[in-house]
Amino acid sequence: MKKENHTLVNRFTFQGFSSFHEHQLTLFIMFFVLYMLTLAGNIIIMTIISLDRHLHTPMYFFLGMLSASETVYTLIIIPKMLCNLIDLSRPISLAGCATQMFLFITLAINNCFLLTAMGYDRYVAICNPLRYTVIMNKKVCVRLAWGACSIGLIVAMAQVTSVFRLPFCATKVAHFFCDIRPVMKLSCIDTTVNEILTLIISVLVILVPTGLVFISYILIISTILKIASAEGRKKAFATSASHLTVVIVHYGCASIAYLKPKSENTKDQDQLISVTYTIITPLLNPVVYTLRNKEVKDALLRAIGRKLS
């Protein structure tokens, strides 16, 4: 859309999935079902972890925090997206867009660093098991969780402030939520400085956690290979497999979305990538940790048994 100079706006509308207008109802049903599954899965994980004393360990503390973060993360994006699939003309105010972007960035970064904390937890559990309870005590876990949230809040404040100080002339956001690049494209002025800032932040909050997790797993794998018994190696690999699966998908999607050249993909390709990290990845968390994790499955069966009795 051509931008008109000197015509400032105070609200936006989302183009959403307008390219697939004839499939709006199908998309609505599909995304609604996935959203319900995501909510149900994460709520079940949080409930099981809080109620079952066998899961009151650092690993499941971080998993519960991740599930809570993913739940709020989807709440700020998907309901609005579903409404727009029904009514494409529904606007969002400038303040509403800034709030959505702020919460989205905060929780996305929080998730990245929570996964890093979970990687550190697995490293201590496997590489230093005798001192695990001393190193990963309650105070350390709370500090790591609070640190992940604090980094998200600080970075989100800087990013949102830089974006919404820009004057906007166009009103159509070529996306289904207030993501950084689609909103910046609506500015009347050159946004090169903002794009450089966004790239620097993306590199720091994606590559730094990825590097830390990568180092953790190099040390974990080298320790596992030294275990004498095959059963011991299998058990050690099993405790880390679920986390590693989520890490690969989460950081992989984030890297594709925010570290690729801005003109590399079309709008539809960008939206497909965004659907992956806003809908599929939050659903992956409960699926992986319930289907691949024996302790969570056992806790779920115990809870079902108590309910039936």
Rank of each mutant, 00 (worst) to 15 (best):
M1C: 00
E4L: 09
N10R: 03
R11W: 08
F12L: 04
T13M: 01
Q15D: 11
S19E: 11
F20T: 01
H21M: 00
H23W: 04
T26I: 08
F28A: 01
M30E: 00
A40Q: 10
I43G: 00
I45E: 04
I48P: 03
T57Y: 01
P58I: 10
Y60T: 05
A68E: 11
Y73M: 08
I77E: 13
K80E: 14
C83Y: 11
D87N: 15
I92L: 15
L94R: 13
I109G: 03
I109N: 08
N111F: 12
N111I: 13
F113A: 00
L115E: 04
A117S: 14
A125N: 08
L130W: 04
L130A: 07
R131S: 10
R131H: 11
Y132L: 00
Y132E: 05
M136H: 02
K138Q: 09
K139M: 06
C141D: 05
V142I: 14
R143I: 14
A145N: 05
A148Q: 01
V163P: 02
V163A: 07
P167S: 08
C169M: 03
K172G: 03
V173N: 06
H175M: 11
H175N: 09
F176V: 11
F176G: 11
P182C: 06
V183S: 10
V183N: 01
L186T: 08
C188V: 13
C188Q: 14
V193G: 01
E195G: 02
V208M: 07
V208G: 05
P209H: 03
P209R: 12
F214P: 01
Y217W: 12
L225P: 00
K226G: 01
A228V: 07
G232P: 01
K235V: 05
F237K: 04
A238Q: 11
T239Q: 14
V247P: 01
Y251F: 15
A254F: 15
I256L: 15
P261H: 10
K262A: 13
S263Q: 10
E264T: 09
S274F: 10
V275T: 13
T276V: 15
I280Y: 14
I280C: 12
T281G: 06
T281L: 15
L284K: 10
N285C: 13
Y289I: 03
R292D: 07
N293Q: 08
N293T: 14
E295M: 11
K297F: 12
K297V: 02
A299P: 12
A303Q: 11
A303M: 14
I304V: 14
I304M: 14
R306H: 13
